[in-house]
Design a protein around this nucleic acid. Structure first.
Lengths: 156, 156
DNA sequence: TCCTGAAACTTCAAGCTTGAATTAATCCGC
DNA sequence: GCGGATTAATTCAAGCTTGAAGTTTCAGGA
C-alpha cells in the first residue's frame, strides 16, 4: 500500500492511487515519529494516548462502545487498552448507571494531569513535524481532507 | 491522536494539529476499508499486500533490509510476514549471492499472478474511495503531501 | 411473566508491530 | 591472517488489532 512503483504509473485513476500512497506514507512517517517520542519521553504508546485524548474531552466519561466508534477501532481492542490504563491508575471504570451492561470509563485525576502534560508536548511535536506547511496551507489541506472523507465514510 | 476536541481548538499551531488529525482519520478510514475488502475478496491482509507490491516492482528480488526500509516497518516485522507468504507459496527466499548473511526475496510465479489480480482490484477500490477527489485536486494534494514530507523525513 | 432478540462488553486466536537481544557473516585496520 | 566493529537477518516478549464467539443484561411483545 505504501509502495509507489518506481516507473511512475500513469493512466486513468493513477492520480488517486498516487494520492493514496502519499497520504499513507505521510501519516505512517509522522505516526512513527510520534510513537517513538511518546515512548522515549513519556514511556507510553500511541493507542493509550488516543484513548486518553478521547476521555479528556469527556470529563463525565464515555462508554466503551463510544470509545471504539470514535477511535475507529474494534470493541475488543479498546477493552485491552483500557485494562492497561486502569492498571496504571490513569483510567477508571465506573459501573454506576442503571444499565449494568455498560461502564462509564473516564480519566482519574492522575490520568488527567498526566495527559495534559503529554498533550502539550504532542501538539508541539506535530507543529514541528508539519512545520513546512504554512498555517494557510494547513487549513486548505484540512478542508480538502474533510470534504472528501465525509462523502463516502460510513457507506459500508 | 485521532481525537478532535469537540470544542474546536484554536490558537497558534492548532491548524497543524487539526490537519494531522484529519490526515490520520482519513488514512485510517481508507485503510480499514481496504483491509476489509482484501480480507473478504482475497482472504489476505494489508501487510501481505504491501510486501507483495514492493516485490512486484523488483522482479530480481529484494533484500529483507531493503523491504523494511521501503515499507517503513521494522526488520523483525518483515521476517514474519515473509515467513507467512513463503508458507503460502507466494514468495521465495533465494540464498544465492556471495554474501551469506543476506537472502534475496522475490515473488514466485504464483505470487506474481496472484498479486496482479489483487492489485487491479485494489486500484479500482482506491479510485472509488477517493472518487470525490478530482484528478486535478488529487495531483495538487499529492504535491503538497510530497513537499511537506520530504522536508523533514529522515531527520532523526 | 416469559421469551426472544438486541445491545454492551469481554474473551479468544491469529496476525501485525516494535525495539532489544542474538546469531551469523563480512569488512577492515593492523 | 587476526580480531574487533559493522551489517543482515532472526528471535523474542510485550503490546496492538481484528473478527468471531461467548456472556450478561436489557427491552418489548405474547
Amino acid at each position: 500500500m505504501v509502495a509507489g512503483p518506481l516507473p511512475a504509473p500513469s493512466g486513468p485513476g493513477k492520480d488517486r492511487l498516487r494520492l493514496w500512497i502519499r497520504l499513507l506514507r505521510a501519516s505512517r512517517t509522522i505516526e512513527a515519529e510520534l510513537r517513538e517520542r511518546l515512548r522515549q519521553e513519556f514511556n507510553t504508546t500511541l493507542p493509550r494516548f488516543d484513548v486518553m485524548a478521547a476521555l479528556y474531552r469527556a470529563p463525565e466519561g464515555m462508554l466503551m462502545s463510544d470509545l471504539s466508534r470514535f477511535l475507529l477501532v474494534s470493541n475488543g481492542n479498546v477493552t485491552g487498552i483500557i485494562d492497561r490504563l486502569v492498571s496504571e491508575g490513569l483510567v477508571m471504570r465506573a459501573r454506576r448507571n442503571g444499565d449494568r451492561r455498560t461502564s462509564m470509563v473516564r480519566l482519574t485525576e492522575e490520568g488527567s494531569k498526566t495527559f495534559a502534560v503529554i498533550a502539550a508536548a504532542h501538539e508541539k511535536w506535530v507543529g514541528e513535524l508539519l512545520g513546512n506547511v504554512s498555517e494557510n496551507e494547513a487549513r486548505r489541506l484540512t478542508g480538502m481532507l474533510t470534504s472528501f472523507r465525509s462523502n463516502w465514510e460510513g457507506r459500508e
